[in-house]
Amino acid sequence: MTSALDPQELGAYFAFMEASSLLSHQVEQHLRAEGDLRYVQFQLLARLANARGQLTMTELADGVVYSRSGLTYQAGLLEAAGLITRAPSAEDERATLVTITDAGLALFARVLPGHVEVVRSLLFDPLTGDDVDHLGDIMQRIRDHMRAQPPRSAAPRKRRSTG
C-alpha cells in the first residue's frame, strides 16, 4: 500500500493543479473568443506551423498527448474548416501526413499574440527570471519522468477473458 502524500507534497500538488486549471481555463477562453479554437486545435496548428512542413498523425498525437481517435476527430474539424489538409504518405501506407494551410497559418498568427499575453500575464508576470529558470527545470524533469512511462495507447492491451 502506498503511503499518503505528506502535507508539503499535498500542498504542492493542489497548488499546481489549481494553477494549471486556472491557466487552462483562461487560455481556452481566449482561443475560443479569438479563433473559435479549442486548446488541442491550437496545439495542432502550433506544431504544424513550427514544423514548416508535414507531420504524421502519430507525431502529432505523441506531441500533444491526445488519444489517436480524439486527434483524428479534431483534425477532421480543422480540415473541414480549411485550416489543415490530410493525405496518405507516399513512403508509409499506414501514415497520414498533415499540413497546415495558408488559412491555418493566418489563424494561428492572429491568435498567437493574445495567447502569449494570457500566458505571460498569468504564469510569468509574478515570477523573477530565476523563478522561470527553476520552473522550467522542474517542469522538464517532471515531463521527462512522465514521458519515460509508455503512453496508454502504447501499453499492451489486456486480454478479455472468454468465459
Rank of each mutant, 00 (worst) to 15 (best):
96 T>F: 03
46 A>Q: 13
106 A>Q: 05
100 I>C: 01
157 R>H: 11
1 M>I: 14
57 M>E: 00
11 G>F: 13
29 Q>I: 11
1 M>E: 14
133 D>W: 08
153 S>M: 09
112 L>M: 05
45 L>R: 03
84 I>Y: 05
105 L>A: 04
114 G>S: 08
70 G>P: 02
75 A>N: 06
27 V>P: 00
91 E>D: 14
54 Q>D: 02
25 H>L: 14
16 F>M: 12
130 D>A: 02
98 V>L: 00
24 S>V: 00
155 A>M: 13
123 L>S: 12
46 A>D: 03
154 A>R: 14
132 V>F: 03
113 P>S: 12
127 L>N: 07
3 S>C: 11
120 R>N: 14
132 V>T: 01
96 T>Q: 06
26 Q>W: 02
61 A>N: 02
113 P>G: 06
159 R>S: 14
70 G>H: 10
124 F>G: 07
41 Q>V: 04
158 K>W: 08
23 L>C: 07
96 T>M: 03
108 F>H: 06
108 F>Y: 11
28 E>N: 11
58 T>W: 09
158 K>R: 03
27 V>L: 12
160 R>N: 08
163 G>H: 07
147 R>D: 02
152 R>M: 14
6 D>K: 09
43 Q>I: 05
155 A>E: 12
139 M>K: 10
27 V>A: 00
152 R>F: 15
100 I>N: 04
